[in-house]
Design a protein around this nucleic acid. Structure first.
Lengths: 218, 218
DNA sequence: CCGTGTGAATGAGTTCACAGCC
DNA sequence: GGCTGTGAACTCATTCACACGG
């Protein structure tokens, strides 16, 4: 069970898992692909098809056991274990990421932070102490880093990524607004709000000065 | 020229524009789809095909004028004008977004910030003063908001989005880890580092304890 | 000759529609 | 009756391959 699974399917599984977590909290026991789809803006057929790549998790006539399906998905995604994350770049963005309280509860522990600014090195940010980027290479092994989050300025991004690659890190989340190259056995995700904004404005161009009913308050 | 253009194409155009900006700075006059592709990890054919949806911008035998193509793309994407952005939620993340210095140079001006926490209201963050979320509806018109960035806790996200929709905002960048529903004439982009991380770990599962050559330092 | 622009061919991903089971 | 699981049909996206122009 390796990689003949469509990329897009893997990108959707975490969304399914998130909705299921919500349903667990609502104490829902069972859910249909129909309802899951409605909550996710995805067709029921797509959900069933996606899940079918991994096995048969549902019961005909009723649907899926919320708890069971969530456990399955978490196992499939490798979320039933802890991951050690390094944040590289401890500027405004890096600091925000290091302190972000949403990672740890999901098993992503920020265990290291790195920056090349001497004013930041040895300072504490959240629970970790910032180290020099020179130490990154050694620290990856020491700290057992599995995942790198890159939050350095664009021109430095490729260098940092190259170091991570050399250390055997196989998953990189890149916040730098730069294209970085990785071999295809390495996972890379880009987070870039500007690209997102710029792709939305394309569709906004036509929508000029939307008529608004003036005065009357509903 | 409306919307028979594939979604994915529109998502790629901003990347092209970004690389072209870089080339302008390097004083490159001309570029081929070949080279553009190499810098972006995209096939040359794809670039040519993508551009062909909008016109003929290249010269056979030589390639594309860097400057001219950039101007064209910026015009196509609606980046040759200014956009007014509201950030809703002025917590840790919201503050970072409000202060992010990368938006303004690209024509995205954060002109309003909103939060429902009384301790934050009327406080200055960066260049803007935080207003109460109650004022959001009126402010959208007053400030001419075109784009909303949502950085509130997940449970509040849909409410905030609904207000934005009521005000006629047609582009929303959602940082809240929640699925929000919008009509299809509204553009929505999601930014969620956790989903990104969780989709990477799927591929990491198999890669166990990568053998490292011990001792010898290269 | 080199590189664009593009129909045509291929490939990937989604939806349909229905058999099978609860 | 209701809902899953899934081949088959279809839609959407990418790549090929070549005619054409500088």
């Amino acid at each position: 069970m390796a990689d003949q699974i469509p990329r897009v399917v893997v990108l959707r599984l975490p969304m399914y898992a998130r909705v299921l977590s919500g349903l667990v909290k609502e104490n829902r026991k069972v859910v249909s692909s129909q309802e899951l789809g409605a909550r996710l803006q995805v067709t029921p057929a797509q959900i069933r098809k996606d899940l079918s790549y991994f096995g048969k998790f549902g019961k005909q006539g009723s649907g899926y056991s919320v708890k069971k399906l969530l456990v399955e998905l978490r196992s499939i995604l490798g979320l039933d274990r802890e991951w050690s994350v390094a944040v590289i770049g401890a500027g405004r963005l890096g600091k925000a990421l290091i302190k972000y309280p949403g990672f740890a509860p999901q098993g992503f522990n920020v265990v290291g932070a790195f920056d090349n600014n001497p004013h930041l090195v040895n300072k504490k940010v959240g629970k970790v102490t910032v180290r020099s980027i020179d130490q990154l290479e050694d620290s990856v092994q020491e700290l057992g880093i599995n995942v790198g989050i890159v939050a350095v300025p664009a021109p430095e991004a490729q260098n940092v990524v190259s170091v991570l690659l050399r250390c055997g890190v196989k998953a990189i989340l890149n916040y730098a607004p730069a294209v970085v190259q990785v071999p295809k056995d390495v996972q890379l995700r880009e987070i870039d709000p500007l690209l997102a904004l710029q792709s939305m404005t394309f569709y906004l161009k036509e929508t000029r000065t939307p008529r608004r009913d003036r005065g009357v308050r509903s």
